[in-house]
Amino acid sequence: MKFAIMVSEGPYTHQATDSAYQFAKAAIAKGHEVTRVFFYHDGVNNGTRLTVPPQDDRNIVNRWSEIATQNNIDLVICIAAAQRRGLLDENEAKRQGKDANNIAPGFRISGLGQLVEAGIQSDRLVVFGD
């Protein structure tokens, strides 16, 4: 089965992104496909490469990058939600005249249409939020 996932909460404060990750891992282990994870609301904060969690804790951002690279998952950060919250890729930083960018490997910034498209193209869209 083809799954798409939406993550609506940021890392560490809320379990939603952990649950989404565990779901993705379990689905892949069972032979399913996870095509896209769409990060919305505070969920966009899962895509900053500047997090530095304590060494004895899980690294939520790196974990997403790794599972995406290994399984060809499209990690999409909503551009409108990202801009409000200070998440920028190189192009956006240049376009907005900002002096830095912070997107983690494997993530890309795109529009809300990617969420609707994921709903159309997948067999199930699973939402993890509050």
Binding site: Y40, H41, L112, G113, V116
Partner: peptide, 19 residues
Amino acid sequence: TIYALEGLEVVLISAAFDQ
């Protein structure tokens, strides 16, 4: 919270997909 506002943004985008 921002959920209602950002939710409405998704609704408006969905209109472009003829669903």
